[in-house]
Design a protein around this nucleic acid. Structure first.
Length: 371
RNA sequence: CCGAGGGUGGCAGAGUGGUCAAUUGCAACAGACUGUAAAUCUGUCGGGUCUUCCCUACGGGGGUUCGAAUCCCUCUCCUCGGA
């Protein structure tokens, strides 16, 4: 059971070199310079204001040479909104056995080719500056769950150390870059797993260094779901009210609403896009009744949304729209049966329509939350 | 009509005496997905009281053998070559 109180949520705005952002908001993921399967027209329709790219992946492909020749990532992908770039810190976690961590940085080997790369805090910031990112993330170490307290402590210490290096390198980089009319923002990332003392330690150390915004990382890496609000409650009271707070990598709609309630401003997650491509569609049965009239509302997850596995046999002859309250291209033009058919024959249109729909679901939800 | 090679589970295609209810791929069905190693991954996929048990099953029928998808005979169908 969650409680949503629209009068209590944080609403404010801040600007990046590519525009003003109103919180709380959700960032679609464009790891390698594209929201997988979507065109610029699709993005125009979705109008997310800000999307997320990834340092590590863009560094490998297409590489900085190409991005530089294209005059930055925005230009390269023809996206004029803001871009937040993740530092590659998450790959320290997700690439698991394909990397080795030292205090200086992380050695990665590409899973397919075995090709080796060494990413450091300095290099990460350098890459992000060259990409032309609007919001640059500090390079962090995201420990998996479960990890011993000793290991999490080590990750916190390393993350703090790297954060200091990132800050310094960022400041120097900005000062030396006379072309940069508007300076990007730099965010620090709080680690500490599920340990209250380590979370607080991490937050305090990052506050001391000073950032334009603060992210909470290392959440939803496998720990039980109850930890989400616990971790947020450990950290959020310590953060300044006038700086954006970003919950990295989350989540399902009910998790986002929980986090909004507790004071989070920014989200990103692969769930809507990936699950859309995989045929799992987010739909609502009633049109956001939980946001109507009443300011306070108790609701359960099922009351916000449900999901359809559109590939199921049940939808073979279901000619109704996926979500009758949705205004996306899929819901306005095609039936469940048709989308199922597209998935069954493996046509890429299915992937695109699925991702667009789910992202529309998420972004519209955020719109409604903002009011 | 003669010669040669074949007919295996929804399809394709392994297997040439026991460890075969039968490799693998596709299709089908179901599930997973949280700062994207992900248009990916996992499971099921002849039937039964779902079992270290039984039944049915590798074109049909018959035979050899302790034992056959695998060997023999016969019928049938397909493909290729020759009249």
């Amino acid at each position: 059971m969650l409680l949503f109180d629209s009068s209590k949520i944080r609403r404010f705005s801040f600007s990046t070199p590519h525009g003003k952002l109103n919180t709380p908001f959700f960032m679609p993921i464009a790891t390698r310079g594209v929201v997988k399967g979507l065109s610029g027209k699709d993005l125009e329709y979705l109008n997310p204001k800000i999307i997320l790219g990834n340092t590590y992946h863009l560094w490998l492909t297409p590489g900085l040479e190409i991005i530089k020749k294209a005059q930055g990532l925005h230009n390269f992908m023809n996206w004029q909104g803001s871009i937040l770039t993740d530092s590659g810190g998450f790959q320290v976690f997700s690439l698991g056995k394909f990397r080795k961590i030292t205090d200086e940085g992380v050695h990665f080997s590409e899973p397919d080719s075995g090709k080796k790369h060494f990413l450091t805090p300095e290099k990460s910031i350098d890459i992000q500056l060259k990409l032309g990112s609007d919001i640059i993330m500090a390079f962090d170490e995201c420990p998996p769950w479960p990890s011993s307290k000793e290991d999490v402590l080590k990750a916190v210490q390393r993350t703090t150390k790297w954060a200091g290096i990132c800050k310094k390198y960022f400041r120097d980089g900005i000062e030396n870059d006379m072309d940069n009319k508007e300076k990007p923002l730099l965010f620090g990332i709080i680690q500490g797993g599920t340990f209250a003392d380590l979370r607080k330690k991490s937050a305090k150390e990052l506050l001391k260094i000073g950032f334009d915004g603060y992210a909470i990382g290392g959440v939803a890496v496998g720990e039980p779901r109850q930890y989400l609000s616990k971790v947020l409650k450990m950290v959020l009271p310590l953060l300044p009210k006038d700086k954006p707070r970003y919950l990295m990598g989350l989540g399902y709609p009910e998790e986002i609403i929980t986090a909004v309630n507790l004071g989070i401003d920014m989200f990103d997650c692969v769930i809507p896009s990936r699950e859309g491509r995989h045929g799992r569609l987010f739909i609502r049965e009633k049109k956001y009744f939980w946001l109507d009239k009443k300011k306070k509302f108790d609701f359960k997850k099922e009351e916000i949304y449900r999901t359809l596995n559109i590939k199921r046999e049940d939808f073979k002859k279901d000619f109704s729209p996926v979500d009758k309250y949705c205004d996306c291209e899929l819901c306005q033009n095609y039936s469940r049966a048709y989308l199922r058919h597209l998935f069954k024959i493996g046509d890429t249109l299915a992937l695109r329509l699925g991702a667009v729909h789910n992202l529309r679901f998420y972004l519209e939800m955020m719109e409604k939350i903002r009011g």
